[in-house]
Design a protein around this nucleic acid. Structure first.
Length: 196
DNA sequence: TGCACGATGAAC
DNA sequence: TTCATCGTGCAC
């Protein structure tokens, strides 16, 4: 199945998000990523998904964040500058994509949990692993700059309005009281949210 | 060098 | 509720 609905995304007016968009409080970035467009072009094929669900990981003090383990080979991207992709393998079979936020060394990020198919999307996109499969995102894109021309997030001038639902993050029960905080955000009523 | 364990998804 | 599947992090 290939979905092409370019009518709602006029590339001529798509605006790539600037560095300073990511260099802000993680919760603000997370909420504002909703409704934005994730674009990945590989081998002449441009795939686009509209972000509808995210989770905020606030830094080393956030016990659910990978950076809580400190600076390691895997997490060094989280400790790097904002506006880069942190992609890792989970459960030996799925990739998860994050956007690094805040100043270098802050080690915070936003996990992209679900997108709505917009262009050249095959398969389901309701969940972080499925999202990466559908957009052909894998380990090769780890540490990739999101201000590049083949992998970035963009907005349209048109500001669509929607309600934002706040819920606890998924799969982080080990994180004590951090598991209870409402750091998952999604577009209310959107059918592509992984766990409404 | 070995091993327990996931920011998941699908089947039962 | 169980299981597939493997890189990472830390114990030894």
């Amino acid at each position: 199945m290939t979905t092409v609905r370019c009518s709602i995304v006029d590339r001529a007016v798509m605006r790539k998000l600037p560095r300073f968009f990511y260099d802000r409080e993680t919760i603000v970035v997370a909420r504002e990523l909703l409704g934005k467009y994730l674009v990945h072009e590989s081998r002449e094929v441009e795939r686009i998904g509209r972000i509808v669900e995210v989770e905020a990981y606030l830094g080393p003090h956030d016990l659910a964040a990978h950076s809580a383990r400190g600076l390691t080979e895997r997490t060094k991207v989280m400790f790097g500058p904002p506006g880069h992709a942190y992609v890792y393998l989970i459960y030996g079979m799925y990739y998860c994509m994050n956007v690094v936020t805040e100043r270098e060394g802050h080690a915070s990020a936003v996990l992209l949990r679900a997108v709505e198919p917009v262009k050249n999307i095959e398969g389901r996109t309701q969940g972080p692993g499925l999202l990466c499969n559908a957009l052909r995102i894998d380990k090769r894109l780890n540490a990739h700059d999101l201000l590049s021309d083949d992998f970035y997030i963009a907005a349209t001038p048109k500001t669509d309005s929607f309600a934002i639902v706040k819920r606890p993050r998924v799969g982080v029960d080990y994180a004590g009281h951090w598991a209870k905080r409402h750091l998952r955000f999604y577009i209310k009523g959107n059918p592509f949210v992984s766990r409404p």
